[in-house]
């Protein structure tokens, strides 16, 4: 754990989950996706959520990101209680506080890389000049300065995912969520991308949570959380 992260731990946690439950009704049979998960993440941590399919890691990530509702317990992100927010407020929270990186990249196919990055700033209502320079900077920091004019279809998977990361960090969120960011990439690209995420974490202090079932990912993270059957099984190498 870096010194920076150690210091940050003393301040309020970025994410705090207490007894989170998520129950899906499937053909009127309740399915427990989360059965009371507790997780606290402090600023500057790089956390991997691991576990087999159906363990609840994606659901937990979605709940933290304000994408999915939860049925019991409490979740706060950046000190804000998500349960108290309306859908519109949730959207605002996501827009300003959380950055997302998806497994399928999810870039807008009809926009160029730069436009994709600028797009989110535009949603925030950032003025065009500032938008331009921030997007440029974000792309540059991810080594994409040359590729700004290309459309997603003209980029490799690794490049697309880096554009997605640029888009996620350009808003300077308090938390970056990455759901299986490397699942569609080969091992070499995976390593490169993880290095990018680690650099983000170590040099800029970005708090990152990533759900993954790829053991390589865990080699890069500062804290490894393992889930099983909707509960936290192991946290930082210690069984919960």
């Amino acid at each position: 754990m870096t010194e920076f992260a150690e210091n940050a731990k003393a301040t309020a946690p970025v994410v705090e989950c207490r007894g989170v439950q998520r129950i899906y009704q499937q053909d009127s049979v309740p399915v427990y996706a989360l059965r009371g998960a507790d997780l606290t993440i402090h600023a500057g941590e790089f956390v991997s959520l691991a576990g087999p399919s159906g363990s609840g890691k994606s659901t937990l990530l979605n709940v933290i990101g304000g994408l999915d509702a939860f049925d019991a317990g409490s979740v706060s992100v950046g000190g804000v209680d998500l349960a108290a927010l309306t859908p519109a407020q949730l959207a605002q929270t996501r827009l300003h506080n959380v950055g997302f990186v998806f497994q399928a990249y999810n870039l807008i196919p009809v926009l160029s890389a730069r436009e994709n990055v600028e797009f989110i700033l535009q949603l925030q209502g950032v003025a065009s000049q500032e938008r331009r320079s921030r997007a440029e900077q974000a792309l540059h920091s991810l080594g994409l300065a040359e590729l700004g004019d290309r459309r997603p279809g003209e980029l490799s998977g690794g490049q697309q995912q880096r554009v997605a990361i640029a888009r996620a960090i350009v808003t300077e969120p308090v938390l970056l969520l990455a759901d299986e960011p490397t699942a569609n990439l080969d091992s070499k690209t995976t390593s490169e991308l993880l290095a990018v995420l680690r650099d983000l974490n170590q040099q800029q202090g970005m708090t990152i949570v990533t759900a993954t079932h790829d053991p390589i990912v865990m080699e890069y993270t500062s804290r490894q959380v393992t889930m099983l059957d909707g509960e936290i099984r192991q946290d930082g190498g210690v069984a919960a």
Binding site: A91, L95, V98, F100, F102, N106, R167
Partner: peptide, 16 residues
């Protein structure tokens, strides 16, 4: 669906 879902995930408002 996925693209629009992403826009919502990123926090695009209903109105937009």
């Amino acid at each position: 669906t996925q693209e629009l879902g992403m826009l919502r995930a990123l926090g695009m408002s209903d109105r937009l």
